[in-house]
Write a protein that binds this DNA or RNA. Structure first.
Lengths: 192, 192, 192, 192
DNA sequence: CATGAATGAGCCTTCATTCAT
DNA sequence: CATGAATGAAGGCTCATTCAT
């Protein structure tokens, strides 16, 4: 029923975002031209400009739509007491958020140089710093502080490596979360 | 000793590499044009082509000249027994190597998408995998394997974060190395 | 009298003309996009196409509606004897007409290159030539003929300069008209 | 000898200016694309960019190279006493300058809207005002002031009309200059 | 060693216009 | 009356690269 590539109306904006994110992550932001995106969608370049004001605007919209959970997470974190239990919960939730926003994160990871002058990049970096601040143990030793931020970077690196290393994805994610929590505990722990 | 005293006439090639690496790391490979590099050096674009066949060739040369220590490290590692002590030494040496090749690493970190089709990128990725293999505990639990590769990523992330976080650089580097070794030990250790 | 009282519903067409003329005069025809006009009116581009078949059509309609008095003036002139008195009256009436159609004239003045291939432009240029012919003293010396057409150009230039030069607008207009008539008289006069 | 469209080297910049000025004047600045200019010269668009940084830059260079005499004229005028004789000489020299820079002036005349945001446009307008100031009779009546600036505009309009009106060009130019001087004299005159 | 001049491909963006709803 | 969605053409500009000198 209507299977000859109907011009599915109404969801174009969404489809642009999907394709763009995929290509940006796969080939890099600069190397992905709007022509390429348009061809993947079988529309003209001009059509993209009906939905987004600029190329950068596509990225902005992606953050707008996909980075929300992480924002929420940080906001939540900032209302909580700075106990170890809360921090562990933060990591757990962050792991979930990362899973959901995986493609966006891959995009960021692979386009760090680009992110820097993408405006939304700086915004996001700020958020990351706040998140780290939440996990940090301000009066801890340098080693402890390193452990805290490593807890987060472990998870980021995990995202990347998930693809390259053998093993069941879900199992890997849990292992990664486990290690991250472990680092956090060590940073805060007295016993052990 | 270390005084091979290259003929001083014509250090242009070297200068091109320096400027290129700096700009590539700072602004990204794609966003840095040969014109820009040439202007920084006060020569013409055509001059660059006297020294390097293509833009990519500049990157290749950078790896050639700067990634050597890491290559050597891996070669060394592969001739050693897979003991914990050797692995610890690997991390130590890797930390040194990272310090020396910091700009190159920053460049890679920030241009991951680009790296993928830069030929030399794949080459390098292969080396990383071999390095990880060297550190790995093949029969270990998933968590232990995660700890092993996290040991390395911690150091990479450290590079990045060194700038953003307060504290004495050298002290930070040692703390990072310490945490990395710790992770390695935990992955292998029973009594820890 | 003059109260044909157009149905008030739907003055959009009029508003389009107003905004278009203003923007065309201010920024130039080519540099004013339909998008811009539409935005000023808070309607969509497509709406413009309901009222006007093309961008050029807007200009045509502007001439249709605003250049009429000048047309009438020329028609009137061509039925009159070629006396000096009539010519003076022509200038007077032209001065009035210019005042009324000022924005249109500014638009023409500032978009002369564009006018040339705007069809309506040629039409209008023809009218100007007829007007000049009416003022001309065919058997006069070259100087006299120059004076005749200068009489007109003085008034055009006046429009332009009115804004840049200090002084009461109405007073300036009268002075300009005075000089123009003077030129005309000199061209025709012996005893002057 | 060498008649098969040799790639005449060295004069490209000049040729670009020539063609550009001609096309800009003939069709308007906005409607003349760089592609068109390049095609007229049988080079690529990119070649234009080797010689000029932007499209606007071509215009700037044209003013730089062609408007110089007028600049000099004004500078000269500002060192002279404000006598009627000097003012007449100013007009005479201005007439010559206009003749030499005719295409440039035609370009300006036909692209006034464009001139406004072409940076060099404002610069030039400033010069015009200084020139008018030189000719002006500050304490004169409004009519006299109008005569002064009309003297100049007459000459500008003359340029334009030279093409449309029959008659020997040189004769026309002299007639125009005559009328302009006449206006000036009348503005300053005692008798009459 | 290095430059001056040029190219071809491609990029992001804008525009006037169309048409089904 | 008017909009939402899209198109095709074109525009200005930049880039990596080449080559004769």
């Amino acid at each position: 029923m209507g299977s000859t590539a109907q011009p599915r109306r109404g969801d174009t904006r969404q489809r642009i975002q999907d394709v763009a994110l995929e290509l940006f992550a796969e080939q890099g932001y600069e190397k992905t031209s709007l022509r390429e995106i348009a061809e993947h969608l079988d529309v003209t370049k001009a059509a993209l400009y009906y939905h987004f004001k600029t190329k950068e605007d596509i990225v902005v919209s992606l953050f707008h739509d996909l980075a929300r959970p992480i924002d929420d997470l940080i906001v939540w974190g900032e209302t909580q007491p700075r106990t170890l239990e809360v921090k562990k919960e933060l990591l757990r939730r962050y792991s979930d958020a990362l899973g959901a926003a995986a493609p966006l994160f891959r995009f960021m990871q692979e386009n760090q140089a680009t992110m820097r002058d993408l405006s939304v990049g700086e915004t996001f970096k700020g958020r990351m710093l706040r998140l780290m601040e939440l996990l940090n143990k301000p009066d801890g030793s340098m080693s402890d502080r390193v452990r805290c931020f490593t807890a987060i970077f472990t998870m980021h690196a995990g995202m990347l490596a998930l693809t390259d290393v053998e093993g069941d994805p879900e199992e890997k994610r849990e292992a990664i979360l486990g290690v991250a929590i472990d680092l956090l505990v060590q940073a805060h722990g007295v016993t052990q």
